[in-house]
Design a protein around this nucleic acid. Structure first.
Lengths: 146, 146
DNA sequence: CCTCCAAATGATAATGCGTCTCAATTAACT
DNA sequence: AGTTAATTGAGACGCATTATCATTTGGAGG
């Protein structure tokens, strides 16, 4: 998933019995070449700018499909809309720190926390399928301005 | 906050320059005597059963006020509506495990995770104001049935 | 107790994200 | 190329939450 032309993007869909439509390719390509955490509306707007007219309904449907097949991760930062990021492989799982002033998102990875989460789940006989950790507060810049 | 009659509940509001209305007292009392994670509609329905007619709008407004003043914690389990629980003191902070089959919520507390979160924040010069950790998966009962 | 008024309430309209519907289109297999 | 089930677009719809605004009320000051 590090380097892909048009061909390998199509493969993503075809390997999952999904038609490789131009709309789906547009959404996937955008997410694959973007490090931000976009919401559906932002995806719609960015595609519009590139003269790629994909309806909002199709964007939502495509995102659903990509999330189902683990190409994309759906994130909820508690501000009333979902955000999406490309999904790394499981061993690259990371969590998020969200600045409540400027909205900046910092990604971090802490193996010890990951291990502890697994341990806690086991202790309760809980089968962990996914987990999220969000730290809310002020980023260094916004804290300084204060 | 362990033992309170009508009087001390009123104090909660008055200490914060808020009128101690019967509607607010009804909502607060319900949350204080409930260990579940209720959403706004459930709060509305439970009060109705007790012949306490509080409008949905007032419930939302009261919850907002209680969250602002740290009497109540607002939780987002990703199912499209917010849930509310009484807020313990910070040293009793706990996290949640949510069963995606039956919806059961298991609370847990892990001091090591708490410490690591604080460390991670410091490493990024981030001022942590709050944090949430959710583990999603199957509870022991639902995993067994599968 | 009585008056007063900012604060709070209730009813309902409005918002906003996301999903559903359905007729028209199209990817991709034969 | 022909066929067909999958996909799309446009807009209606659903649902949780917020906003509006006329009416009511808590509680401070007399």
């Amino acid at each position: 998933m590090t380097t892909h032309g048009e061909g390998s993007l199509k493969k993503v869909f075809r390997d999952n019995q999904l038609k490789a439509t131009p709309q789906r390719l547009d959404v996937l390509k955008l997410l694959m070449t973007c490090s931000e955490h976009l919401d559906a509306e932002e995806i719609y707007q960015r595609l519009l700018k590139k003269k790629k007219n994909v309806s909002r309904a199709t964007i939502y449907r495509t995102l659903e499909v990509l999330v189902e097949h683990d190409f994309v991760r759906k994130l909820d930062f508690g501000d009333g809309r979902m955000r999406y990021e490309q999904n790394q492989s499981p061993d690259e799982h990371h969590d998020h720190m969200v600045c409540q002033v400027c909205g900046k998102v910092i990604e971090f990875y802490n193996p010890k926390i990951e291990d502890l989460q697994e341990l806690v789940a086991q202790k309760h006989d809980f089968v962990m399928l996914s987990h999220t950790m969000h730290i809310y507060g002020l980023c260094s810049e916004c804290a300084e301005g204060q």
